[in-house]
Computed example of a mutant assay.
Amino acid sequence: MGVSLSACGGGGGGGGSPATPFTSISDLPETGTVEAQGIATTATIRLNPNTGDFAMSNISGTEASTLRLRRENGEVVGLVLTAPESSAAIDVRDGGDITRSGAVVFFDSDARLEDAILVLETGQAFEHQTLGVWLSSPELNIGTIGAGAYGAQTPAAGIPRNQTATYAGESLGRAVDADGLLYLTTSGIEIRTDFQTTSLSSTGTIGFEDGSGALNDLPEFDFSGGGPVTGSGFTAVVSGPATLGVADGRFHGPNAEEVGGTYSLTGANGVSHIGAFGAN
């Protein structure tokens, strides 16, 4: 899904009704609002109207973030994503357009000033988490982007001991390359852990180019790395052919059945990449 910063018009809202805490995908209410806590990374995105080049700046560290979903008769009809430096609110009551393709839900405001993509279930059958990316552009040619992972975090007592685990999943992100092109990215994720240290790899990155929608292989945005587990999460230093940065993860489910998190990486010549991942 491409997102244009040069759109104009009004944006969506909603999500003000009382919410129940998220427990699992299976327990989402048929009708009602649910709220999930998680982490996100955000950035400012600018479009140079003279050259058509994008630039990403003000990339945040890992921040607390909240997802609110409104459902009616089993279908998502509203979304609010909030983080300290960025937010998006899209609701059919405010003219928002919400469509579903398999496990992926696409959100567009009535004038495309706010867009989001949310993975509610996947081929990996996530049960304890969801992940997504968003863009909000309240001003011409400038906006914010975010990527977040949300779920029922594993309590400390539920973290396995003296065991190993391998998780497989996927990522969603936004990237700007050295030519100033903006992409919506996705990749395969593998995470290995003995719950003392964790290794993470993101491979097979592909990107949908903003504007044209062209699909490109982007191996320069693959990355890998590792780091220690602390409590029910981990922080990993990660790097790839063109980038260096950090990934933060949280285990989800009663006994760490799933893992999700965010990443942010930068490189030379304005290369930048932020995103969220989920695996089980």
Rank of each mutant, 00 (worst) to 15 (best):
M1V: 04
V3Q: 07
L5F: 13
S6L: 11
C8W: 06
C8L: 08
G11L: 13
G14L: 12
G16E: 07
P21H: 10
P21K: 06
D27F: 03
E30T: 09
A36T: 02
T41G: 10
R46C: 15
L47N: 05
N48K: 09
P49A: 13
N50R: 02
N58R: 00
S60L: 04
E63M: 05
A64R: 00
R71M: 03
E72G: 06
G74C: 11
G78P: 02
V80T: 08
A83S: 02
A83T: 00
A89V: 04
I90C: 09
D91Y: 09
V92R: 00
D94F: 10
D94H: 06
G96L: 05
I98T: 02
R100Y: 13
R100P: 13
V104E: 14
D110P: 05
R112T: 10
L113V: 02
I117T: 11
V119R: 10
L120C: 15
E121F: 06
G123E: 09
A125S: 08
F126A: 12
F126I: 08
Q129P: 07
T130A: 04
L131E: 09
L131I: 08
G132I: 07
V133D: 10
L135H: 09
S137K: 07
E139K: 05
I142Y: 15
I142V: 15
T144L: 01
A149I: 01
Y150Q: 02
Y150N: 02
Y150P: 00
G151M: 10
Q153Y: 10
A157M: 11
G158P: 03
P160D: 15
R161I: 09
Q163A: 12
A165D: 10
T166I: 11
S171I: 04
L172R: 03
G173M: 08
A178Y: 11
A178G: 14
D179K: 02
G180L: 03
G180Y: 00
L184E: 13
L184A: 12
T185D: 01
T186P: 01
G188P: 03
F195V: 01
T197P: 04
T197Q: 12
T197W: 10
L200D: 13
L200M: 13
T203F: 14
F208A: 15
G211N: 08
S212D: 11
S212K: 00
G213K: 00
L215V: 11
P219K: 05
F221E: 11
D222R: 04
G225R: 09
G226K: 06
G227T: 05
V229E: 09
S232Q: 01
V237S: 15
V238H: 12
P241A: 14
A242I: 09
A247P: 02
A247M: 06
F251M: 04
G253H: 06
P254I: 05
N255E: 14
A256S: 11
E258Y: 04
V259A: 14
G260Q: 00
L265E: 15
T266N: 07
T266R: 02
G267N: 12
N269C: 12
H273G: 00
H273S: 01
A276P: 12
F277N: 11
F277S: 14
G278I: 05
